[in-house]
Design a protein around this nucleic acid. Structure first.
Lengths: 137, 137
DNA sequence: TATTGTTATACTCTATAACTATA
DNA sequence: TATAGTTATAGAGTATAACAATA
């Protein structure tokens, strides 16, 4: 059985991404969130007060889809919204959110370490530059 | 604005994969198929007569989800099914399927070349080994 | 007993269009 | 006019459970 896809970077990218995501979501399920929630918490933790649309642009999530994402994390008590002006609202972590973010970082670090460990040591310095290159928009 | 996700291989993997996939699907739309159809055609072209479940296992697609995938490509006249024994059926490309596969290969080659071109030249030899490493199952 | 193909279904993710309120 | 947030909805992708027929 020959797999002609196994030498295509685009295909490998998709399979690697999907496997990594599934594994990360299994880990994050322990604290009741998924990888999208985690990315929003990490972004908000690093940029308190950014607004919802900015967060969406950085995360590649459309305005309309930010609504249920922010709402459920607010409902969980992890995020809060604060009116910036009449139309935009700033996002902040609650104190519970700050605590959860520590755990998120631990889980993410463990996950990233597991990923990188699968790459031969001499190639590891190239992982991030290569992935940044492949991520074209 | 600081993006703490931009240095996480797992996150870069996801964003790179999603951007690459969207671009590939735009190209494949010209011939009326998507990346999953393309992967099935390529696999079947390389392994005529493999059965539906085998194809699903290699492509990471569940049995149940192979049904509509194979059906629509059969309905398009690209694939045909042939009874192997009472329960399994072998997959083959039709002659139209063989023709379309040539175009698929051209599109895929163009896509992969575009991807790889975005990686600094001295790092290109590491792209496939790194992605294979990151693809853990 | 395990496997193949199938159906039906539910759930998540993402995309689009339209609306309001505001800058 | 352009932007922020929102609602509603449609489509695609994926996951699960169950079933019949067959190895």
């Amino acid at each position: 059985m020959f797999d002609p896809l196994a030498s295509l970077p685009g295909y490998l990218l998709r399979r690697a991404s999907s496997a990594s995501l599934a594994e990360l979501n299994r880990k994050l399920a322990e604290i009741g969130i998924n990888h999208v929630d985690a990315s929003l918490l990490m972004l908000t933790g690093a940029n308190p007060g950014l607004n919802q649309s900015e967060a969406g642009r950085i995360l590649g999530i459309q305005r309309a889809n930010m609504v249920p994402l922010v709402s459920r994390n607010e409902a969980r008590g992890l995020l809060r919204r604060q009116k910036l002006d009449g139309r935009s609202q700033a996002l902040f972590l609650s104190s519970t959110g700050e605590d959860i973010l520590q755990t998120v970082h631990k889980i993410a670090d463990r996950h990233e370490a597991m990923l990188i460990a699968r790459v031969p040591e001499e190639m590891r310095p190239y992982v991030i530059p290569i992935l940044r290159g492949l991520w074209m928009e």
